[in-house]
């Protein structure tokens, strides 16, 4: 077993390396590959948070991400949207998070009464409805999306100082990651996982199952909202297409690539997805049929390794460990139980 201390060291090392990447790579790579991967990873983390701790796969996360983005766009000075508030960007971002959490709680209170595959379907329906709302309600989504959304001044220019927004995203991602790890060990987090493993027993023990789940969904909405706010800070624009069903599925794909049950997998998956998306079209065989190629990659992953890349890493690691200690006494894995979402 790799000791916990070593895990920490590796983690800190990764963050330090990540922090100096903007000095190594071009502005484009920093902005369009690294920052994009961090933001998509954060959105995927909200999905994986629910999947790993709650045993739920939610397809409403990108919708909530959009709620946050559109709220910011409507509250601040921008081209498109409501245009009546012209609020300070920080206040607007804070309010956007509040709105997103409220919407998340509303969806959560409804969806948290369902399990597994029903939850998937219900959240997909909610996600698509949010997209349809912004697509149709042009008062809220502007003429051609909301463009030129102002950024916080400290971020400088997205063009000239791409590393600033990158560092902000990196810091928030690290905080969210640590927060989720911490949350999993709080009494509340343990109760949430307990519900995943045995709902009737938790209910019998006197836990308010619906409340706990709803609050957990609210937390996930908060994480998705953070990603949504960062997205408009970074991209300075948002349109209904941002949260269309295609991107919803690709966010799920990111989570699957990374491994649905490992938080850090969110960013691994996002990075792989962003690189594939950026590079696939240069492959002659693929050309403009990038979506087909991504679909095939997705299909292969769910067919071959439902644990995604992190699952591959883990199975390789455990194989290596087993071959070292032939006894096989070591339990593989580090205790994060992978819930079986299947009914039996």
């Amino acid at each position: 077993m790799i000791s916990a201390r070593l895990h920490w060291l590796i983690g800190i090392g990764i963050v330090i390396v990540a922090a100096v990447l903007p000095f190594v790579f071009s502005n484009f790579t920093t902005s369009q590959i690294l920052t994009r991967a961090l933001i998509l990873g954060l959105a995927a983390a909200s999905l994986i948070f629910l999947a790993s701790l709650g045993g739920w796969v939610s397809l409403a996360q990108l919708g909530l991400y959009g709620v946050a983005g559109f709220t910011v766009g409507n509250l601040v000075q921008a081209d498109g949207g409501a245009k009546v508030f012209a609020m300070d960007i920080w206040l607007a971002s804070l309010l956007a998070l509040v709105v997103t959490v409220l919407v998340g709680l509303l969806i959560g209170v409804i969806a948290s009464r369902s399990e597994g595959i029903y939850f998937l379907m219900i959240t997909l329906a909610f996600g698509v409805i949010i997209k349809l709302l912004f697509e149709k309600a042009t008062d809220l989504s502007g003429f051609g999306g909301i463009n030129q959304i102002i950024q916080p001044a400290v971020l400088g220019s997205a063009q000239l100082d791409p590393e600033r927004i990158y560092w902000v995203c990196l810091a928030i991602c690290v905080l969210v990651y640590l927060g989720i790890r911490y949350f999993a060990h709080t009494p509340f987090g343990l109760a949430f996982q307990g519900i995943r493993d045995n709902t009737p027993r938790m209910r019998a023990l006197g836990y308010n199952v619906t409340l706990i789940r709803t609050v957990a969904f609210g937390i996930a909405a908060f994480i998705a909202g953070l990603a949504g706010v960062l997205n408009v800070w970074w991209n300075t624009q948002i349109s209904p297409g941002t949260i269309d069903i295609g991107p919803v599925i690709f966010l799920l794909m990111i989570a699957i690539i990374g491994g649905l049950y490992r938080i850090e997998g969110a960013w691994v998956g996002a990075l792989i997805y962003v690189i594939l998306d950026n590079r696939l079209r240069s492959v002659d065989l693929v050309g403009e049929r990038v979506a087909t190629a991504l679909g095939i990659v997705f299909l292969l992953i769910v067919l071959l390794s439902p644990g995604g890349v992190m699952g591959i890493y883990k199975s390789l690691a455990s194989r290596w460990r087993r071959s070292r200690s032939e006894s096989g006494a070591a339990r593989d894995g580090d205790g994060t139980a992978a819930p079986t979402v299947a009914g039996d």
């Binding site: 649905l260 049950y261 071959l304 390794s305 644990g307 591959i312 593989d332 992978a338 079986t340």
Partner: peptide, 18 residues
Amino acid sequence: MNIRNKRWGWLSATLLII
């Protein structure tokens, strides 16, 4: 959907390589 399903090990490795 249990990620600990062992017989996927080598397939996973292949996929990673792909």
